[in-house]
């Protein structure tokens, strides 16, 4: 019997909402959405945690410009607070070195981090998931029953074909899907809406391709001033501030 599994829900007991930002393909803006969402919610006065679960390609710290911090050790690990966000990532233990982990090891590391991280009271815990329907996604589904999935996609047929598979799995397993965000929109197109309708999942909104976004990475203040952040705010924060679910 693995006792770590018993304690995970206790560790998250004081977290009001857990939002997993996911999407099938890599490079569609999951980490940017998760990081910017956490940053925006913290700026609005919410108590926010951000957990980068992409162990093989962690990037939230790069997006937010987080460096030189580490968790405090006190009967577990207390994530450091930066820009009002309690931030947890494998980078505290891996540094800038690559983490060549196989599936079972990723799963074990996720269980370990969930079991020993003391988040404390939070309004939101944002989980940034890696691409695909691999170990991280399956572990979040297995271990955190009240998680809500926020699914990111682009208009690309490639991204849509993969995100459909993720939605199929989430639906089959009866998971809560907060909605879909269309990212990097370059023109009006009905493909995302049609796909969402076929699954009975709401499209929360679209975020245009922002060519100035890259130059804002690593600087949280600049990031919040981008069109990307403003559009994301328009889509999500107003719904949250209204106290309701993410979807309308």
């Amino acid at each position: 019997m693995d006792p770590r599994l018993n304690i995970i829900n206790n560790r998250l007991a004081d977290v009001k909402r857990i939002i997993a930002v996911s999407g099938g393909k890599g490079g569609i803006g999951k980490s940017l959405t998760a990081s910017t969402l956490a940053l925006g919610l913290a700026r609005k006065g919410y108590r926010v945690g951000l957990f980068d679960l992409d162990f093989c390609g962690p990037s939230d710290h790069v997006i937010l410009g987080i460096e030189g911090v580490c968790p405090e050790e006190d009967k577990g690990l207390i994530p450091p607070e930066i820009y009002g966000i309690r931030f947890m990532s494998i980078i505290y233990f891996s540094g800038s070195s690559p983490a060549p982990l196989r599936g079972g090891e990723v799963s074990n590391a996720i269980v370990e981090m969930l079991a020993i991280t003391l988040w404390g009271p939070l309004d939101f815990l944002i989980m940034d998931l890696p691409p695909g329907i691999g170990d991280a996604v399956m572990d979040v589904i297995r271990l955190i029953k009240r998680v809500e999935f926020l699914v990111i996609t682009t208009q690309s047929r490639v991204a849509l074909s993969v995100v459909k598979k993720e939605l199929q799995v989430l639906k089959e397993l009866g998971m809560s899907i907060a909605g879909i965000i269309e990212n990097m929109r370059v023109r009006e197109h009905s493909a995302v809406v049609e796909m969402a309708e076929s699954f009975g999942v709401p499209v929360l909104g679209s975020v245009d391709f922002d060519e100035n976004l890259e130059s804002s990475l690593g600087d949280a203040r600049k990031l919040l001033k981008t069109n990307f952040a403003r559009q994301l705010e328009g889509i999500i924060y107003s719904r949250i501030a209204a106290g309701g679910p993410l979807q309308s």
């Binding site: 019997m1 006792p3 770590r4 599994l5 018993n6 304690i7 206790n10 050790e73 006190d74 009967k75 577990g76 690990l77 079991a115 020993i116 003391l118």
Partner: peptide, 18 residues
């Protein structure tokens, strides 16, 4: 001191199983 966190999980698991 994350030994404490693991010890906590052991006692909780024993308690739930009992």
């Amino acid at each position: 001191m994350h030994e404490w966190a693991l010890a906590e999980s052991v006692i909780l698991a024993v308690s739930e199983e009992a």
